[in-house]
Design a protein around this nucleic acid. Sequence first.
DNA 1: TCCCAGTCTGTGAACGTTCCCAGAGACTCG
DNA 2: CGAGTCTCTGGGAACGTTCACAGACTGGGA
Lengths: 333, 333
Amino acid sequence: MAKRPTIHDVAAVAGVSRGTVSRVLNGDRYVSTAAHAAVRRAIAETGYILNRNARSLVTQRTGSVVMVLSEPHEKLFEDPNYSVTIRTAVRRLAERDISLVMMVAGDDGDRDRVVRYVRGGHADGVFLLSTHAGDRMIDALVDLAVPTVALGAVIGREQVIPYAAADDREGARQMTRHLIERGRRKIATITGPMDTPGGIQRLEGFADVLGRKASKKLVEHGDWTQAGGEGAMTRLLQRVPDLDAVFVASDLMAAGALAALRAAGRRVPDDVAVGGFDDSSVAASTHPPLTTVRQPLAQVAEETVRLLLALIDGAGHVGPVVLPTRLITREST
Amino acid sequence: MAKRPTIHDVAAVAGVSRGTVSRVLNGDRYVSTAAHAAVRRAIAETGYILNRNARSLVTQRTGSVVMVLSEPHEKLFEDPNYSVTIRTAVRRLAERDISLVMMVAGDDGDRDRVVRYVRGGHADGVFLLSTHAGDRMIDALVDLAVPTVALGAVIGREQVIPYAAADDREGARQMTRHLIERGRRKIATITGPMDTPGGIQRLEGFADVLGRKASKKLVEHGDWTQAGGEGAMTRLLQRVPDLDAVFVASDLMAAGALAALRAAGRRVPDDVAVGGFDDSSVAASTHPPLTTVRQPLAQVAEETVRLLLALIDGAGHVGPVVLPTRLITREST
DNA sequence: TCCCAGTCTGTGAACGTTCCCAGAGACTCG
DNA sequence: CGAGTCTCTGGGAACGTTCACAGACTGGGA
C-alpha cells in the first residue's frame, strides 16, 4: 500500500489546484460545475480521505465533542440509560461529521485531565452527563467559555449551563396524583440523593401535590440503589407503620422497597401501593410489575445534542428544554 | 485571552530551542538536567498545552482509539454493562493519554463511516463491542490492518481478532450442574440468539453437561429480551409440561420466563427451578431472586484494553483471554 | 596531543490542510 | 466602450509539531 493520497494528488488527477479541491471539500461557492465534477471524480478514483489533523491545525476546530461521565456516588449509579444516551448522541453528531470522545470524571486527576483536554482546544464542545452539585471542574469549564451543555440540570448552574431534561417535577406530580386517585391517604416517598436534580425535583413535585400533608416523617432518602431503597422502606415502615402508599424516585430503589415490604408482610398493592420512576427494565420484571413514570430518554439526549450544536454554531444563549413524562400504570398501585 | 502558547513560546521563555522542548515533551534522552528543568518551569509558567493535531500530523499517530458499538438486534440489547465497559476502557486508556472515540455501527451508513474513519488514520486502534456474525465492516477493518480487538469473541473471526471474554461455556456448565445437584431431572434451556457468542456458548456448556439428555425438545431460542424470554418459556411449557428446571441464558429473559411460569401457575423453585446468566441488576429484584452466573465484567473490559494496547505497541499476535465466571445462588433454584 | 565516541543543542524541512490575495475572464450597466 | 461587479482559479503562507542532521562541547584512551 502506497502512501495515503493527499489533496495534492486529488488536485493533480483532477487537473486543478489545491485551492479548488479544498473549496469543493468545504462546499464553498465559486467552483465551476466542471471543476466540481472533476474533483469529485478524482476523489473517488484516488480513494482520498481528508486528514482531519491537518484541517484542525489551521481551522482551530476539531470536529469533536467530549462527553464527560461523572460518577456521583462511587459508581453506584450503573444507569442503563447511559447506553441510550450515548448512542443517540453519537448518531446525531455523526450526521454533522462530529465525533464523540468519552471521558470519565471520577477523581480529581480525571477532572484535571478533562479541563486540560478542553483547554488544549481538543474539543469544540462539552456534553455533561450525571453531574453533581459543587463540582469545580464544571466551573473551570464554564470559565473556558467552550460550548457546554448538560443532560439534566446542573444544580446551582441552571442559568449558566443549558440543559435538556425530563420534567421530573411534573412526573412526580403525576405519580402522586395517581396514588391519591387510587384512594391512598397516607403517602410516603423515598427520594434520590439531594444533590442530584432527580432527587430534588421529584421530591418537590411530590410536595406540590400533597402540600402540607407531605410531612417530614413521610420522606426518606435513598441513594438510587436497590439496597438503599430497601433500607429506606424499612425505616419508613418503622416510623409510619400505617402508610398505604409510597412514591419511590427510581425503579431500582422501588425494587428494593418491594423486597422490604414483602419482608414486612405487606401486600402490594393491597396494603401498600408502590410507584416508581424511570420505567427502566427492572420496572416490568418486579413482582408485581411497577407503576412508574416514563422519561423520554432518547428525546432528552437528542435535545441536549441539539442545544450543543446550536451553541457551537454560535447561538449566544439557548434556553433549557424540559420534556414531558408519562405515567405507566401497572399492577403495583 | 491571548493566543494559546506554542512550543515556540515555551522555548523562548526557557531560553532553549524548539527541538529541546520537543525532546522534553517526548521524554527523549540527551537533554541536560538544566535544560530539562528550565523547560518544565517554562511550561508551567506559560500554561502550555501540546497541540495534538500538530503532533499527529507529523507522527501519523492519533493518540486515540475508537470503540464501535454494534447493535445486533435492533437496539433490543440495552445492556447496562456498556456503562461499566466504557468507564473501564476510558480509565485504562487515559492512563496512557489515549482518548476514546465512540462510534455506532447500526446501519450500513454507520458501518461505512467507521471504516472510513479508521482508513483515514484517525484512530490507532479499534475496540469492538457486541459484534455479530457476518459483519462486513469487521472484515474491512481487518483488511486495514489496524490494531483491533473485541470484547467477546467475534463469531467466525476468533482466530483473527483477539478478544477477552467471560467463560460463557463453563459458566453454563456450572449452572447446569447446579440444577442437577438440586435434584432436577428434566432440565430445559432458553438460549440467546444463535449468532451471538453468548447464545452459542451457553448452549454448548448446557449440552456438555447433559450430554444426550439435552434433546432438541428442551431447547428454545430467545432474543435477550424479557418478552422473548416469556414467549420462549410459554412454548417450552406447551411442549414439555413436566419440565422441572430451566437455564435461561440471560437474567432479563429469565425475568420474562418467571412471568410465564407464574401465569401458568407453576411455583418457583418448588415446581420449576430457574437459573439466569449475567448477574445484572434485574437478577436481585425478581421474585424470587434469581440464581445466576456472574461475569467479571470490569475485568473483561480491562483485559480487552490490555490486548489492544499490546497490539498498538507492536505485539505481533496476542491470544484471547477467557476469564472465569461464578455461580451466584439465590432463591430461584 | 589527537581522535573518537558520547552527550547535548539548534535549525531547516516536512506533515496536509485552509486562508487570503491577486488576477483572469465574463457579464452588466451607464 | 470603459468601468465595475461577479465568478472562478492558482499559489504562497501559515497552523504547531517532530524528525533528521549538523555541529559544539566533553572526556577518555592511544
